[in-house]
Write a protein that binds this DNA or RNA. Structure first.
Lengths: 417, 417
DNA sequence: CAAACTTAGTTAGGACACTGGCCGAACGAA
DNA sequence: TTCGTTCGGCCAGTGTCCTAACTAAGTTTG
């Protein structure tokens, strides 16, 4: 259990073998997922809905209860007649996952328990680019250890950690290949953190922010039956997370959804990546600020907190400031062009806008939706466009969920009390 | 077994339940896939490689052999000492799948057996747009019935059919929603064909051509460990098929990979779809012909067979004709722009060019590869660019493979001899 | 040339997971 | 109070995979 796992899962022959233990684990997993998707219900109803027999259901539920993953709730009157059942529901008091977002000027942590409740959350200002890598890792490890202690004191097991650095990840090596905004290059973050976290290191996963955003949003949409979702994170950089048929699509080497550098700007501005015409040069945060205000305007002052600056812009838009509104219109147009590409390629059912796009959702959503609808080739090809409700914490939250996913895949990973 | 299944598989709670029969079926499926991916080998080696015990392997193999899915081959000397093992390999003499491509001017059929061998192939000229829908369906059914009879006479079971119309599909209804080049609208093709094929109708699947091309190509690449592949079909229309982590990505309603209408033409030509600037207006077959020759040139003569016209163009290019070469260069540039979008979004390991792109592979491949490599953000983000070797039959072949996939998913669908 | 060794495949016994039927418990309705 | 319904537990039965021992068929060694 102290092994660090950071490689993306690949289909492999050995993994496919099924024996009785795995059969039982798979059925236990089925019950957990069913409870997560549809909420608490009686054993009898679970049996009917999953197709398992009542006897098996009783056995599996008592097994899950011994592991502290489910608990019995109140009596529940299903119909009008007959003996009422005892509600079985996910028990959040035993297991949680922990997500760690390392960003340019802060480190955010979020712990989510098995029932999906955020039980711990923290955000700590850290000037990452100015500090040596070692110092940052020490700082992160301290924050993580503190939270681990607090969680464990409360009697919970941490099923896993997910670290999310803002940059290009080498999954196989468990390292950050390149994080321009941090000034990091080839940092073996998984091994370094594992060394600094002790003595019991939960498995450490590594994933990028847009993918984790997609996971966090998908957790909210899955109960409604959505299985194809696209998450678009709007920050200085722009990235997408893709969920297809309920699974996170990572691509061959984890670079799926790198949409910030799609060549979509006909005027071909210079991008930080060295190429020209990248999408994020026209819809990224810098583009909004540049379009909405002159260089010496307060919203372009990097010493002011970003949230305040966005708030200022939003207030101006609300007051009818023409330049701000024009900037938002421009962003909308350019966003629509890129989104229409993503819709054509991926055909998602739901598109979730995150980051600063979410902040300006009231201005972007409607015209964007109209622009997309206009391009619709056919009923069914259009997507529902919504705004993230998770805010800044979506990355850390998604990380926690990814870590928990291991338990939902195989509940027997958690030992009996 | 006579039910027609055409809906895309969706994750569902009931499907997840595992019992002992499914455990055995899953292990049998594992063996079949392992044999398909790695070729014939002894029971002992299969046991070691899959993780199953030798005893279980013996039992499963004899079960599979009774169903006619595997057979014993020659003695195979693994090491130097010890008893030599008997090779177990896929047996193609019992089961096959049948793919049916309905195109504008022909209907192509391909039957592929369990071992991946194409055992029947046919292509029949049919002037689909000129004929009433009923007449076309009658004609298709006749062709299918004839091939079914021939296959069944040879003692094979047809595990399933896959029909591929060139148009927008309604999976849920099993119908062709709109096929502009055929003049079809709302044709319930699955039900109509099921009625006309008798008396034993295998399950009928429905899938579009680019997706089937991807499936057919993936079948060739999977043994090399590729699990993320993009297939790009180049015809008058342009479409993509996406394989991610070994699975065909259909999108929410089956419209994934509709890349022909990506807004990538800065000059914004009018497209048949009603919008402007669609990718296929600059890289589709019509664009090549328009760029390479004047309107009254023989290559633009629709009465000549397409293959001849392409051949003419290729000969001209070989002879150094400047206009043809310039056209190919232009196509290359525009193709690269779109492909780079797809690479950024999907991060495939392999990109397979099909259709007319494959025909001009010797001119397109190298400059395209260079253009993509130039845009590479990082090692690992680049994709291998190759040309399809399957040619025109890839759609029908992919259809046959899709039908066979049911057997690879659950070998117990095939009864004992 | 025969005994020892090595590897392949089969057989027997055991552990274990799901099923199905039966039973008591708990409740509403008559 | 009695009947019918539903919930959940219990137990025997079936079937799967696993381990271990065994037979089979070669090679190597003395």
């Amino acid at each position: 259990m102290t092994s660090t796992s950071h490689t993306p899962r690949r289909p492999s022959a050995a993994a496919g073998r099924v024996d009785q233990a795995q059969m039982r684990a798979a059925n236990m997993a089925l019950i957990l997922r069913h409870l997560r998707a549809h909420g608490g219900r009686s054993r009898a109803r679970l049996a009917a809905e999953t197709g398992l027999s009542k006897a098996t259901m009783s056995s599996l539920i008592s097994d899950l209860a011994e592991r502290g993953l489910v608990r019995e709730g109140q009596l529940h009157r299903a119909g009008t007649v007959g003996r009422p059942g005892l509600t079985v529901e996910l028990d959040g008091r035993r297991v949680c996952g922990l997500g760690i977002e390392i960003n340019v000027d802060y480190v955010a942590l979020a712990a989510v328990d098995l029932s999906g409740t955020v039980i711990r959350e923290s955000s700590t200002p850290v000037d990452v680019p100015r500090l040596p890598v070692d110092a940052v890792l020490d700082r992160v490890a301290t924050l993580v250890n503190r939270m681990l202690d607090s969680i464990r004191e409360a009697g919970l097991i941490v099923a896993g950690l997910t670290v999310s650095p803002p940059g290009v990840i080498d999954y196989a090596a468990g390292s950050v290949r390149f994080a321009p905004n941090l000034g990091w290059r080839n940092v073996p973050i998984v091994a370094e953190l594992a060394d600094r976290i002790g003595p019991d290191v939960p498995p450490i996963h590594l994933e990028n922010d847009a993918k984790l955003g997609a996971v966090a949003e998908y957790a909210a949409w899955a109960p409604e039956g959505v299985s194809d979702l696209l998450y678009l994170s709007g920050d200085v950089g722009v990235g997408a997370g893709i969920i297809a048929e309920g699974r996170l699509i990572r691509g061959w080497s984890g670079f799926s959804g790198e949409v910030g550098h799609l060549p979509l700007d006909p005027e071909g501005r210079q991008c930080g990546c060295g190429r020209t015409g990248c999408w994020e040069t026209i819809v990224g945060l810098s583009a909004l600020l540049r379009l909405a205000a002159p260089e010496d305007d307060e919203v372009q002052d990097p010493t002011r907190p970003l949230e305040d600056r966005l708030h200022t812009l939003h207030t101006r838009a609300d007051a009818g400031d023409e330049r701000t509104l024009a900037a938002l219109r421009q962003i909308t147009d350019d966003l629509a062009r890129g989104l229409s590409v993503l819709v054509d390629v991926l055909n998602p059912e739901v598109i979730v806008l995150g980051g600063y796009f979410a902040f300006f959702g009231d201005y972007l959503l409607e015209p964007l939706g109209a622009a997309l609808a206009e391009r619709r080739m056919d009923e069914g090809s259009g997507a529902r466009l919504v705004v993230s409700r998770l805010g800044i914490s979506s990355t850390a939250r998604g990380g926690a969920i990814v870590a928990l996913e291991d338990v939902f895949d195989n509940p027997t990973l958690i030992d009996t009390h």
